[in-house]
Structure formats: C-alpha cells, structure tokens
Computed example of a mutant assay.
Amino acid sequence: MRRVALDTYGPPEVLTLRDSELPQVSAGEVLVRVAAAGVNVVDLYQRSGLYSVPLPFTPGIEGGGTVLRIGADVAGVAVGDRVAWMGQPGGYATHCVVPAARLVPVPDDMSLVDAASILIHGMTAHVLITDVYPLTDGAVCLVHSAAGGVGGLLCQLAARRGATVIGTVSRDDKIPAALAAGAHHVVNYRTTAFPARVREITGGRGADVVYDAVGRDTFADGLTCLRPAGAMVLYGQAGGPVDPVDPQLLNSYGSLFLTKASLSHYDRTPERTRSRASAVFNDVLAGRLRVRVHAVFPLAAAAAAHEELASRRTLGKILLVP
C-alpha cells in the first residue's frame, strides 16, 4: 500500500508519500480500500502541530471506499460493502483501517467519491440548521464563508427551509458561487460593513442566527447583526481564534446566545451518526443538496492540496485519490 505521512510538524512539504505493508486488522475493525479521502481544516492543524498527534502520522479523517477485510467481533459489515467514514485518521492512503462503529453505508446509486465529498461538510451543515439552531420558515440567517464547503451547503439547506439567507464572502469572485448555493444576498465582508447591510436587509431587526466558520475576522461584527435573543453559532476559526468574550457583552447586545458547536457532541453514538449521514445522502440523491468539489489531487500532491485549502480560495471540497 501507499500512504502519506509526516514525521515532524511543519509546512505542507513535510507530507511525504511512502510504501508500507498492509496494516493488520484488529477486533472491531475493518480494512478499507480507499476510493477518495476528504481534505479538512483539521488535517492542516494536525500537520502544523496546532493539534498534537502521535508521529509518524497519516492524516485524513474522512473517506469513502470498499471493505476488503473484517476483524473479529464485527457485525453488520461484509467484504465488498461500500462505506464512508469520518473521525478516524489514516485516510491519505490506498488502504485504511477503520473501526466498524465509524462506518456508514453508502447507497448503491451514490459514488464513493461523492460520499467522501459530502460526509463531514454535509453532516456539519445538517446539524447546524436542525439541532444547534433549528431554522424555520421565515427566519433570517447570516452565513459566513457562504461559498465554502460547509457554508455553501448551509445556504442550500437554509434556503430550502424557507429562511432568508444572507451570505458573506472574502472576495468578489466568490459571490456567484454563494448566490448559486442559495444565498439571497451576498456581501464581501472585507470591503463592505456587513452589519449595516444586514440591518438594511432586515429592516433594522437583525438576523436570528449567525453561522460563523471564520472566527476572529467576523465574530465581533457578527454579534452586532443579531436581533435580541439571537444566536451566534461558531463552528470554525479559519480567520483565527476568537478572543475571550465577556458575558456582559452578550447581554448588552440583547441577551444573545453563543455556542461553539461540534458535530461529535451532537452525534455521540454510531446510530446517530448513521442516521444523519443517511439523511444527507438522501438529500443528495433527491437533488435537494448539490455536491461541489473544488479540486481533486493525487496522493503524491497532498502538500499542494493543503496549500490550496489554506489559501481560502476554495469553492467546495478538496479530495485526495489514490
């Protein structure tokens, strides 16, 4: 097999492709032949050392593939099954060992590449609008990074729920992608004071919820966009971490709610994970959710994939394929 590994933390160039023996499969695990692996921000954090991992390390916490071998004490999975997974490192490879509990079945009429493209981003968008702050018909939401991987899916799902979607982007050339994803209004937050635009669109009322994956660059202004008792939902920090917040500030803006949401805190069992994955896959197959792939790289170009994701030029998912 071949896998991408890092022996030390550092820039993208520390990622190297090497040959390895096929890994052994322990009880409760399966060996999967990888069709595609998703490239996610957490991979960049692990490579750089912002998130500590045991070295040497093969990144890649999301993928899709075919089951080749099954360990002891595994039920409900058979050799040849088409599966996807997330939360287990090692996906930047031709083969990956995955705990059976982390597998979700991929429908027959969905490609494994599409499954790897949509799993984390789609499930994140789904939990944000159904569980973290359930959107209803007539609500107003502000979606930062509306042309990005999760942001674009959030726009699609929110618009289908009848919400008014105000999207922000960091560059004018991303505006068409945000509009195509379902945003009704799009603002370049680097060149336009987006709080004033939100107030204008809402007739001075403010948004019900802000979904923010940018962090430092948008957080403070985002709080001023909310109506009284509105919700600020942080789920990323592409622009850097947010400074500490005095709770009195939330009160002064109208008793606002603030949360930093993680999918794993809502889907704490394999059953919950499979249920949400099934809902996302069904939305894709029914045409309610469009998969948007920004770029596909071979394993040997993992460093270039990381550079592309870090550039914040992306308009969808980045994948690695064996």
Rank of each mutant, 00 (worst) to 15 (best):
T168R: 07
E29L: 07
E29T: 05
L249S: 15
H265V: 00
V209T: 12
V143Y: 00
R312N: 13
G76V: 03
C155N: 08
G230Y: 04
G204C: 09
L142S: 07
V210P: 05
M1I: 02
V187D: 05
E271T: 15
L17I: 12
T273V: 15
R227G: 03
A146T: 07
T124C: 13
A304N: 09
L135N: 02
C155S: 10
A279S: 15
L285Y: 12
V113A: 05
R272E: 14
D172V: 11
S262N: 10
L157Y: 04
L179F: 06
P105F: 11
I118P: 01
D243E: 15
P322F: 10
G76Q: 05
L285A: 14
L256Q: 06
R3Q: 08
D19S: 14
D114I: 01
G230T: 07
Y133H: 10
S170W: 00
A115P: 03
A101H: 13
E271M: 12
V284K: 10
Q24Y: 05
L44F: 02
L154F: 06
G138F: 04
G148H: 06
A310K: 08
L315W: 03
T314Y: 12
T130N: 14
L119I: 12
L142K: 08
G254A: 01
A279K: 14
V198Q: 07
M110H: 05
P241G: 09
G287W: 10
A36G: 04
P247E: 04
L179Y: 09
E62I: 12
A286K: 15
A37H: 00
T224R: 15
V30W: 02
A220M: 09
A213V: 08
G63F: 08
F257C: 12
P270A: 11
T66G: 13
L119V: 05
A277Q: 04
T8C: 04
D131T: 13
R205V: 10
M86A: 08
A139T: 06
K174E: 09
V42L: 09
H126W: 14
R2P: 02
A304P: 02
A93I: 05
D283A: 15
P176H: 13
